[in-house]
């Protein structure tokens, strides 16, 4: 199992490094790229947790589709030499404050529950855990209502995008006409 442990630390370090890169890098293009790296390392962590389907979905949906759009937009309009300027004032105070609150919350959660489990080998996973079939039956039986609600939300978002795009095209036509 030493291989899994090595992979865990590599992927964990990669995910952390990617996440730190997102917030510290000045160039938005590199920032987006380190987010991509972060998501891929997260997928590796999912693989180590036997969640193959989740890992593949993570790469396909986030690294492969959502981040492609980010990269696309940033490469077009980001301006590679233009650094993101930090917002002054309130954010400078509020940001660390919220981060601190989050750290405290996580510490409470960790101390309260799972620290004792770190030395144990962990629970056994049932056969078929994390396979598409298993996740599919969970989504369509136990979690049917949330699943359908989420898909309805996506439908609304898609319709909204179409409406917004049409409205903007209408404006352009007016400008051309005038």
């Amino acid at each position: 199992m030493w291989f899994q442990q090595v992979m865990f630390f590599l992927a964990g370090a990669g995910a952390l490094g990617g996440a730190i890169g997102v917030v510290t890098l000045r160039n938005p293009f590199y920032s987006v790229l380190s987010l991509v790296a972060h998501l891929i390392f997260l997928a590796v962590l999912f693989l180590l947790l036997q969640a193959e389907f989740l890992a593949a979905a993570q790469v396909v949906v986030y690294a492969g589709a959502v981040m492609v759009l980010y990269v696309f937009v940033v490469a077009y309009v980001g301006g590679s030499d233009e650094p993101l300027r930090p917002e002054g004032g309130a954010l400078r105070v509020l940001g660390p404050l919220f981060a601190f609150v989050l750290v405290v919350e996580l510490c409470i959660a960790l101390l309260g529950s799972s620290l004792g489990l770190i030395d144990s080998p962990g629970t056994d996973v049932p056969a078929g855990f994390g396979t598409p079939a298993e996740i599919g039956s969970l989504l369509l039986r136990r979690f049917l209502v949330p699943f359908e609600a989420a898909s309805y939300l996506l439908l609304v978002a898609a319709v909204g995008a179409v409406v917004l795009a049409r409205r903007r095209r209408g404006l352009e036509e007016q400008e051309v006409g005038a």
Binding site: F29, L33, V36, I40, A43, E52, F53, A56, A57, V59, V60, A63, G64, A65, V68, V71, A75, T131, P132, A133
Partner: peptide, 23 residues
């Protein structure tokens, strides 16, 4: 068991090769 998704996943990663190369 995720065979086809594996294909899609690496297919979408291959995009970064073209994208980063061009950029």
């Amino acid at each position: 068991p995720i065979g086809l998704l594996y294909f899609f996943a690496f297919g979408s990663l291959a995009f970064y090769g073209l994208m980063l190369g061009g950029w």
